[in-house]
Design a protein around this nucleic acid. Sequence first.
DNA 1: CACACGTGGCT
DNA 2: TAGCCAAGTGT
Length: 294
Amino acid sequence: MDARQISEAMNAWYARAARDLPWRSPDIDPWGVLVSEFMLQQTQVDRVLPRWLEWMERWPRPSALAAEEAGEAVRAWGRLGYPRRALWLHRAAVEIAERHGDRVPSDIDGLLALTGIGPYTARAVAAFAFGDRHPVVDTNTRRVIARLVHGRAAAGMPSPRDLADMEALLPEDTREAAVFNAAAMELGATVCTARAPRCAECPVAQWCEWRGAGYPDNAPQKRPRQARFEGSDRQVRGRIMALLRGARDPIAVDEVIAAAGEGGVRDAAQPRRAYDSLIADGLVVEFEGAARLP
DNA sequence: CACACGTGGCT
DNA sequence: TAGCCAAGTGT
């Protein structure tokens, strides 16, 4: 396996086949990249695209978002999912405006200190917004490496070894490294997909250990299956958030609790439990017996 | 560190 | 179709 051949083939494929996404445009500033990375956490490109365009027009700089109430960010987040990301992005905007002079920090430690930014997003912003040479590893990249390098059908649990694996493939040249990070993610998202990979279109199929071994069904142990969504607290929280997003005025708490139960609940205490957890998360605020976005 | 956290598309 | 999966993070 030749890391240089692989990175060159992957980057050539990326130059030809990458989707034309606005946050990849050369004249997008680091704020635009950061917003895209928040929205893309656990969320596919197709769903993010229209929302990102709206946000960038409305809040072209961190200070513009920071000047709003947090609830406006949550409302504008719409149905993207995980609304606390909207809350955290608003907090990050405040932190950038107040502590960094309205400029997104370029170093990984500075990025990690921002609310809602973890190991993945910090590296992604440093690499994609500032062009620095860092291995960036997301779920797509982990799957590509699992198959290409380790001959496994799927990636195992995330591990510090993931970064070392990516570093071993990463070109020395800074510019090429940034492209390769994006190329590995793009390949995983569009060709080396979790189900039904399109190996006939893969630029590195000839070096793929998993393919070479005849596609063995050797996926490592996965995380325990996540709880059923139907009937979950998450679903009930989602109902409450949808109700409050659509309301300009505060809604009586009793009314919110009643509405949360419409559509079915697992137990009688569930609406109240879900409501309390949203209060605890700061996604809902209560004042004089009425609930609204923060 | 295992777990909770939305929503929608795909097979 | 019920379950899997998706550019993760904070606790």
